[in-house]
Design a protein around this nucleic acid. Sequence first.
DNA 1: GCATAAAGTCTACAGCGTAGAGAATGTGTC
DNA 2: GACACATTCTCTACGCTGTAGACTTTATGC
Lengths: 234, 234
Amino acid sequence: MADSAGNQTGSRKAPLSKELVLSTALALVDAEGLDALTMRRLGQELDRDPMSLYRYAANRAALLDGVSELVLDELAIFPDDPDWQAQLRKIAHDLRLLALRHPNVVPLLVTRPLSTPLGLRPLGTLRPLEQILALLIEAGFSPAAALHVYRAYYGFLYGHILNELQEYIVDPEENEAILRLGLHRLPAKSFPHLRALGPVLADYDGAAELDQGLAILLSGLAGQLYAGQRESPS
Amino acid sequence: MADSAGNQTGSRKAPLSKELVLSTALALVDAEGLDALTMRRLGQELDRDPMSLYRYAANRAALLDGVSELVLDELAIFPDDPDWQAQLRKIAHDLRLLALRHPNVVPLLVTRPLSTPLGLRPLGTLRPLEQILALLIEAGFSPAAALHVYRAYYGFLYGHILNELQEYIVDPEENEAILRLGLHRLPAKSFPHLRALGPVLADYDGAAELDQGLAILLSGLAGQLYAGQRESPS
DNA sequence: GCATAAAGTCTACAGCGTAGAGAATGTGTC
DNA sequence: GACACATTCTCTACGCTGTAGACTTTATGC
């Protein structure tokens, strides 16, 4: 029988591995937010001394990177899809759902790379970039053009996700109430439009919003592709 | 004569106010990063006991919000500009420069709103939203359409800024070296395109990249405006 | 001069990441 | 079995964090 606290699987003590540590960390972040992910707390969750975690992550920052990587691994990209626009649309929606599934990880996804030069980032983080480049080059973009397209696309995508998470609250009922209350607080003379938009703000359709933006962006980017191909036909 | 450490202005002791606290906090973040902004350190910077800060910010989170607000206050928006597209382009470039001036604050700008429902955010943070709505409605968009346009525009804009800050390193010389070194580290078989793009990655023109994306987005959004006007002419 | 309010300070506490030394456990070889 | 060795885990301790609560100092009004 176990000594004191019950661990999850019932086995005497889980064998502990990088995967287990990271997935437990992710579960903790999903359940209680980024702040809850402390070495001590994670150790407690795994029924181990906090210091034992340092065998699987050099420090807390590395732990955070590991969680980012783990989440990004959920994203499947098919670089060989002949319809590059459809593929980009699919990736966008997949990433959106991923973000909604792990909202507490999004700040990590967005800010960790800011403190790590591109060349030194965890490989898992660079995989989407590489694969989307492959997709675009396959579609006929020059490598340099593919990079530009990637930037516009991924920029827009991350922007949308941040936007949506900012507006969406976990509890939809509370959402409307808080929204009403919050908007009411705004000075009527300095925030007339925002206050008037209360009802519109309340029902937000993220997927539709994303589609609309993507339609604009992709048609614009496709135009560049055709223009480029006419200039220098293969 | 002062007791021990020299304070900045030479006056015996600065009078201390919310403005002074926040601007000192911003300076500290700009100079040494977000982590350097601790209550103790800020108190030391102001030559005061750390606890005295709580008279001007309820807690550290409020301090961070204050810094965000302070930075966003640097952004000038002219909601009466008859050329809405030009104004949006100008705002975009202004915000980009703002981000480059305060790169350490960008994570704050991006993540703080994620933990605060829209209705409860600091007013200074909502001002750009309100003013851009005004601009768009003035330009002929319906309020609801203006909100959608704002979302697409601001989403793209924030995405671009994150992208650019991710790729740009403070020290440009070191940048290229690290980039080369980092890319070299990538497995050649799994990251062929990314490795090949080294030279292209090295010279990044953020302003041009932003312009290109804006051109696509704005022309697409303008199309929606005309379509909407034809459907329901005033 | 004295009451009242405002501003600033002191002390203390629980929690944090993690360095460094040590104990426990597994594994291969005789 | 016994030993050697490497791996894994734990213990203790240090300096740092945010901030609650009581206290002291300073400014203000009469």
